[in-house]
Amino acid sequence: MSETELQDGLGAANARFDRALLRLDQSAKNLGTRLRQHNRIEVDTQRLVHERSRLATELDKTAARAKRLDDSAHDVSRRLVEAMETVRSVLAKAE
């Protein structure tokens, strides 16, 4: 192998090595970016899980309050019917 061929071979190998290092560097940067994105997603996910839990608790409390109001409304309605029947009874006796 001649000196020129050896130099050309070393130059080509050096160029391939440089390209490989650039790809490795870019891959490392991409990995860092993906890790940061992943961490942000994890933080957002935890925030959403916490918010969902808080909203579920609030919904349970609101549903319980709505049930109590519904029960109270039913009781008031029943009492109004009883009162109207009493008034009708009194009016019927007065006639």
Rank of each mutant, 00 (worst) to 15 (best):
S2L: 05
E5N: 04
E5Y: 04
Q7V: 05
Q7I: 03
D8A: 05
D8G: 03
G9P: 11
G9K: 10
G9Y: 06
A12I: 13
A13V: 04
A13Q: 02
N14V: 09
A15T: 03
F17M: 14
F17D: 11
F17R: 14
D18H: 12
R19L: 14
R19C: 13
A20H: 14
A20S: 12
R23D: 13
R23S: 10
L24R: 11
L24C: 09
D25F: 12
D25G: 08
Q26S: 03
Q26A: 05
S27N: 09
S27D: 08
S27A: 15
A28V: 08
A28D: 08
K29Q: 15
L31K: 10
G32W: 00
L35S: 01
Q37C: 02
Q37T: 09
N39T: 06
I41Q: 11
I41W: 14
E42W: 04
E42D: 01
V43S: 04
V43G: 07
D44S: 09
D44G: 06
T45L: 07
Q46M: 03
Q46D: 10
L48C: 05
L48S: 13
H50A: 14
A56G: 08
A56S: 12
A56P: 04
T57H: 12
L59E: 11
L59V: 06
L59N: 10
K61P: 09
T62H: 08
K67P: 05
D70K: 02
D71A: 15
S72T: 02
H74K: 15
H74L: 15
S77L: 01
R78G: 10
L80T: 01
E82S: 10
A83P: 03
E85Y: 01
E85V: 04
R88E: 00
S89W: 00
V90K: 12
L91E: 05
L91V: 07
A92F: 00
A92Q: 04
A92C: 00
A94R: 02
A94I: 03
